[in-house]
């Protein structure tokens, strides 16, 4: 029972990290109709810059702020240099070009920081832990990540649903041509969305850095999950991304534990040992397939 509570907490916290990455991705995809495979790179960059700035500025928090801002600026620079030339092009062109950006930046990071994984220490304020079950302590930092993720989600929701820029973004997601016909500078709107998305991904990268290894290519793992999240949630929908991120986080952690147990109940011996892990790694994709079959536009479609 307590195991389930622990798993749920983990799932929720993974969901929050995924949401931070997926939020930018879903807006960029939804508003600009632009497939940005290089979004995961922003997450990696955030983590690397976080490590560097934390060393230079002497602390996790300074690193978090500086790295998120620079990741945002870097995203804007990429948009200006490369991505804005791709908006009118076909999906395949966008996929190819952004994939090229991934390769280039992964190797670039390796050239600058080396290929050895880096470490970022937790902020001292949050480095404690509390006993959750006998023998297992739960780090305060993980709860803090979930809290920060939730706060950003609320802020973003307020921004998208309560402000004028947010209204334009929502309008852009449902009908881009109409918004532009009404005299809104759609390209400026794009840049705003892009910068915020890149910044959030960088923010998530810094938050994750104390828990996982900071290494070249770390963005791709997250990117795949983030795409699953936005497809389940409905492309362009912040609310959908939020719900789907929690679903994916929970399914990935709780489901993985449960399904190996289930496999052992229904099968015996080596078959169970093989089927369990295989099914567990497929689980979120099965969920995605099910959602697509029942609601092809995702749970909360942005385009009505």
């Amino acid at each position: 029972m307590i195991l389930l509570v622990v798993q749920t907490l983990n799932g929720f916290q993974l969901g929050m990290l995924l949401f931070l990455v997926a939020a930018g991705l879903t807006l960029v995809f939804g508003v600009m109709n632009f497939v940005n495979l290089a979004h995961g790179v922003q997450y990696m960059l955030g983590a690397y810059l976080g490590v560097t700035f934390a060393q230079m500025a002497g602390g996790f928090w300074a690193g978090l702020v500086l790295a998120s801002l620079s990741a945002g600026l870097f995203g804007l620079a990429l948009e200006w240099l490369i991505f804005r030339h791709l908006y009118g092009r076909s999906d395949l062109d966008q996929v190819l070009a952004t994939f090229g950006v991934i390769l280039t930046l992964n190797e670039g990071v390796r050239l600058i920081w080396g290929s050895a994984p880096l470490e970022l220490a937790m902020p001292r304020l949050l480095s404690g832990s509390f006993a959750l079950m006998e023998g297992l302590r739960y780090p305060v930092y993980r709860v803090a990540i979930a809290g920060l993720g939730l706060a950003v989600a609320l802020l973003l929701a307020a921004g998208v649903h309560r402000t004028r820029a947010g209204m334009l973004i929502r309008a852009g997601a449902s009908n881009r041509d109409m918004v532009s016909a009404l005299g809104v500078d759609i390209n400026r709107l794009f840049r705003l969305v892009f910068g915020i998305g890149a910044m959030l991904a960088g923010f998530a990268g810094v938050l994750a850095a104390p828990l996982i290894s900071v290494e070249p290519g770390m963005g791709e793992n997250v990117l795949i999950l983030a795409f699953v999240v936005i497809v389940i949630g409905g492309i362009g929908s912040i609310r959908g991304a939020f719900a789907a991120a929690i679903i994916v986080g929970l399914v990935d952690t709780v489901g993985r534990g449960a399904i190996t147990g289930l496999a052992h109940l229904m099968l015996t011996g080596p078959a169970a040992a093989k089927v369990g892990p295989a099914l567990a790694s497929m689980l979120i994709y099965l969920v995605m397939a099910a959602v697509l079959a029942l609601r092809p536009a995702g749970l909360f479609p942005a385009r009505a």
Binding site: V6, Q7, N10, E134, L136, A208, L211, I212, V222, G257
Partner: peptide
């Protein structure tokens, strides 16, 4: 191979 979070395994070890 690409799992990032080991919390699930840690909880199982503790149990």
């Amino acid at each position: 191979l690409n799992q990032m979070d080991m919390q699930s395994e840690l909880a199982k070890i503790a149990a």
